[in-house]
């Protein structure tokens, strides 16, 4: 157990596809740094741009995990659409240009113990359950399988999510409309 934990910490352990593990480690370090910047920066626009780095890193991790269609969807939907929405939101709410000193709550320090506690519990549970599970590299997932699943067993959830998106789009227009 302990060897598997240390093996997980040393990213290039176990001798399985070292290049992949090194790539994972580099991208993961960049992502964690960018995520910390998102929640600590004093500039709202910088926060949005750091979020782009995190989302791109997540897409890269999907590629490493062989989920290419999800990675492409991530880039299209998140970096392409959601980030533009965020930047519009920042502009329309007239955020301060430059640094802003009151972006945090007065009780923001409360978040640190909560986050650390949650991190500890999650890491413990994850290592306890999957401590020595090895992912075998099976290459990219064929997109045909995803489309077959969406138009086969997952057809009803697929239609439902289409209606949810439609309702959300109409609802957003109704809420934000000026009248």
């Amino acid at each position: 157990m302990t060897t598997s934990i240390t093996g997980a910490m040393l990213l290039a352990a176990d001798g399985i596809n070292i290049a992949m593990n090194v790539g994972f480690g580099i991208i993961a370090a960049i992502m964690v740094f960018a995520a910390l910047s998102v929640v600590t920066t004093r500039n709202v626009v910088h926060g949005a741009l750091w979020l782009v780095v995190v989302l791109g890193g997540v897409a890269a991790q999907y590629l490493l995990a062989g989920a290419e269609f999800v990675a492409i969807s991530q880039v299209l939907v998140y970096i392409g659409a959601v980030m533009v929405l965020f930047l519009f939101g920042i502009m329309l709410t007239r955020a301060k240009i430059g640094a802003d000193t009151d972006l945090n709550n007065s009780s923001w320090g409360l978040g640190i113990p909560v986050a650390l506690l949650m991190l500890g519990v999650l890491v413990w549970a994850v290592i306890d359950a999957f401590g020595d599970t090895v992912i075998t590299d099976r290459g990219p997932t064929p997109t045909v399988e995803i489309s077959d699943a969406f138009l086969g067993p997952y057809l009803l959830p697929f239609l439902a999510i289409s209606f949810v998106l439609l309702a959300a789009a109409v609802g957003a227009i109704v809420i934000a409309r000026k009248d």
Binding site: M31, M118, L119, T133
Partner: peptide, 20 residues
């Protein structure tokens, strides 16, 4: 590649998001 790599990275991101 070990599965915990992905899962621990996700746990770290989750905690950072909760802090935010």
């Amino acid at each position: 590649m070990l599965a915990v790599n992905f899962l621990i990275l996700a746990a770290v991101l989750f905690s950072i998001g909760v802090f935010g």
